[in-house]
C-alpha cells in the first residue's frame, strides 16, 4: 500500500520515490551573480533563545520589500533564520518543515536535535552546485531544543554555505549586517550589564530591536526598525516549552519601555 521509503520516516526519500526531489540544480557556465543581504541573529537570554531578523529583501541596490519574515518556525521546537538567496532559503525551510512533521507523525516521535541540525546541513551540501555558482548561497542559523537534558535546553547552531555546522556559544549572527551585530553582541557579553544571557524578556526584545537599528545604520541592505512606519522585526523565542512569536505590539511596547 505504501511507497517504499529507504529510510523510515525520511521525507526526502519519499519525495525521491515520487521523483519530486527538492532543490534540483545543474551547473550553468554563465550564471549571473545575484546579491542578497540581511541581518539575522540569535542570542541566549535568561528564559531561552531569542532569534530575530530584519524584514528587508534586496536585489542589488534595489529594495524589493520590507515585509519579509526571515525567522521561520520550522516546528514547535525549532527555528530557522535565513540569510542568503531567498528562493533557496525559503525552499530549504519548507523542506525542513515538512520533513520534521512527516517524521514526527509517521514515526510517532520527534526527531532529535542532532538529527534536525544534520538535516539542514544535508540540504546545504545538496545545494553545493548553486552555492559554487554564487546564485544559491544560504548561510542560515538554527535553534532547537535539546531534549536529552531536563528541562529541555534551547541551543543555537550556525552553518557555513557548504553545510558545516557549528554550535554557537551565547550568540551568533549572519548576513551582510552581521559584522556590526557581532561587535555589539561581543561588547555587551563582555562588558555589558546586564549581559544578554542575563536579560529578561523585555530587555532582550529591546536589545534585539536596537541591534537591528544599529545594523541598518551601517548596512543599506538591512531594513532596521522604524516605529513611525510601524516597521518592526521578526522576533521569535525558543523556551524549554517551545516556540513563541513576539508581535509588533509587544515590540513597540518594549521599545518605548
Amino acid at each position: 500500500m505504501n511507497v517504499e521509503t529507504p529510510i523510515a520516516g525520511d521525507f526526502l526519500s519519499l519525495l525521491a520515490a515520487h521523483k519530486l526531489a527538492p532543490l534540483p540544480s545543474t551547473p550553468a557556465p554563465t550564471a549571473p551573480v545575484q546579491t542578497q543581504a540581511t541581518t539575522v541573529f540569535a542570542f541566549e537570554f535568561a528564559e531561552g533563545v531569542l532569534m530575530a531578523g530584519d524584514r528587508r529583501a534586496t536585489a542589488g541596490n534595489v529594495i524589493v520589500t520590507d515585509r519579509v519574515d526571515k525567522v521561520i518556525e520550522i516546528d514547535a521546537t525549532s527555528l530557522l533564520a535565513i540569510a542568503g538567496v531567498p528562493a533557496t532559503a525559503f525552499e530549504m525551510a519548507r523542506v525542513l518543515q515538512t520533513s520534521f512533521e512527516y517524521y514526527r507523525r509517521s514515526q510517532l516521535q520527534s526527531l532529535s536535535l542532532p538529527a534536525k541540525v544534520r538535516a539542514l546541513a544535508r540540504l546545504l551540501r545538496e545545494n553545493l552546485a548553486m552555492t559554487m555558482q554564487g546564485i544559491g548561497v544560504v548561510a542560515p542559523l538554527f535553534a532547537g531544543l535539546d531534549n536529552s537534558v531536563s528541562p529541555a535546553k534551547p541551543q543555537i547552531y550556525f552553518y557555513d554555505p557548504l553545510g558545516a555546522q557549528f554550535q554557537a556559544v551565547g550568540y551568533v549572527a549572519s548576513g551582510s549586517g552581521s559584522g556590526t551585530i557581532r561587535s555589539v553582541l561581543s561588547f555587551q557579553e563582555q562588558y555589558g550589564s546586564p549581559r544578554p544571557s542575563q536579560m529578561k524578556l523585555g530587555e532582550a526584545i529591546r536589545f534585539a530591536l536596537r541591534l537591528l537599528m544599529t545594523a541598518s545604520e551601517f548596512d543599506s541592505a538591512t531594513g532596521g526598525v522604524n516605529p513611525a512606519t510601524r516597521t518592526y522585526a521578526t522576533i521569535k523565542l525558543l523556551r524549554s516549552s517551545g516556540v513563541e512569536s513576539v508581535g509588533d505590539e509587544q515590540q513597540s511596547a518594549c521599545l518605548k519601555g
Partner: peptide
C-alpha cells in the same frame, strides 16, 4: 499502521507539492 502510513505519505506529498 499500513493505512495510517499511506495517509501520512499522501498528505505530506500533497502538502509539499
Amino acid at each position: 499502521e499500513k493505512i495510517r502510513q499511506a495517509a501520512i505519505d499522501a498528505a505530506h506529498t500533497e502538502s509539499f507539492t
